[in-house]
Every structure is written in structure tokens, then in C-alpha cells.
């Protein structure tokens, strides 16, 4: 079984890090994983994105035409990737920043105000973790605990116990939002 995630948003919304944590947790879960950031001209247009593939078989292309999951943190990301999501897939829409919902009706759509949830936890920068928590629940591929431990691993080079704590709350909040 193969799942592919595109996480997209403004630069600074933390989608690259969220993708890394997902990939690390996938590897810890014994899956094959690839993590590929967007590069070149794409980075300039104000949107950053990365693609994570999780599979129990060796992964072919890390470049994905039709992801099974889209995390759209801002409107340009939704506009750009909505059409590409595979039928029956999942779109998470950051309804704090995106005024519309999805036009597709052949897949699961989750409208979650991830920024508002993060702000209510006291740190708007944790919106990426709220979103990650939500898709983890919705896709059921990886246990939340592994995501948490991967997050701690990824942030271990910085001394920020506070950030880790907020991120943990944010993951929980996202997980419980659906």
C-alpha cells in the first residue's frame, strides 16, 4: 500500500518541517519513505511544498502526479493542487486562512481552522503540527506517538523544550479535531 502526501503553504508555515517529521515517523514505523522538497522557481511564488511518499514496498518515483493526501495551508496551495489529488483521497483545508472549501466531491474534505487552533494553544507557529495531527488521524497510517517522537528527534538540535511542548499539544489538538 502506498500513500503520498503533498504538504503546501506559504514559506514559513512549516510545511517542509511537517513533511520531514512525517517521513521520519514513517521510517520509524518500518515503512519505505521518500521526502522531496519543492525547488527552483516554485519556491519563489510564495508557496513552499514537499512531497512525502510512504509505502511498504520500494518506492519508485518520489515525484508524484496524484497525491492521495493534500494539506493546503493557504489558498494558492489549494488552487494549485486540488485538481491533482487522487480520487478517494483526502484534502485538509486550513479554513483559518482559506475562505472556500473544496470543489471536488469525489474525495474526503476536512475543513479545519488549524491556525485558530494553534493560536488558542498560544503559538501560531504550531499550525503545521495541528494540520499534521489531523491528517494522521484521517489517514490512520502512522500512530500519533511515532509522530510525536519524530518531532522531538527533528527538533533535538535546538534547545526549545517549550516549542516541543506546544507542538505536542498542537498534534493532539489536530488529532482530536476530526
Amino acid at each position: 500500500m502506498e500513500q503520498s502526501f503533498v504538504l503546501a503553504g506559504f514559506g514559513g508555515q512549516g510545511v517542509i518541517l511537517a513533511g520531514k517529521i512525517l517521513a521520519q515517523a514513517g521510517a520509524d514505523h518500518g515503512l519505505q519513505v521518500t521526502w522531496l522538497p519543492s525547488y527552483g522557481p516554485e519556491m519563489r511564488g510564495g508557496t513552499a511544498n514537499c512531497t512525502v511518499v510512504l509505502s511498504d514496498e520500494p518506492i519508485g518515483s518520489p515525484v508524484v502526479d496524484n497525491p492521495t493526501v493534500l494539506v493546503a495551508m493557504n489558498l494558492p496551495s489549494l488552487d494549485r493542487f486540488e485538481k491533482t489529488v487522487a480520487k478517494g483521497g483526502t484534502i485538509l483545508i486550513n479554513s483559518s486562512l482559506i475562505a472556500r472549501t473544496a470543489e471536488r466531491n469525489d474525495l474526503q474534505v476536512l475543513n479545519v481552522p488549524v491556525n485558530d487552533i494553534a493560536v488558542s494553544l498560544g503559538n501560531s507557529h504550531a499550525a503545521n503540527m495541528v494540520a499534521l495531527g489531523t491528517v494522521i488521524k484521517a489517514t490512520g497510517t502512522i500512530p500519533l506517538e511515532l509522530i510525536k517522537s519524530a518531532m522531538v528527534k527533528m527538533l533535538s538540535h535546538k534547545d526549545n523544550a517549550e516549542l516541543v511542548a506546544v507542538n505536542q499539544q498542537a498534534l493532539d489538538a489536530g488529532y482530536n479535531a476530526v
Binding site: 517521513a23 521510517a27 521518500t34 521526502w35 522531496l36 525547488y39
Partner: peptide, 10 residues
Amino acid sequence: DGMLGQMMEP
């Protein structure tokens, strides 16, 4: 190539 340089996999 640059893609291999940027990618992560275990």
C-alpha cells in the same frame, strides 16, 4: 543530480 541532493530517505 540536485534531486538526489535534496531528497531524504532512510
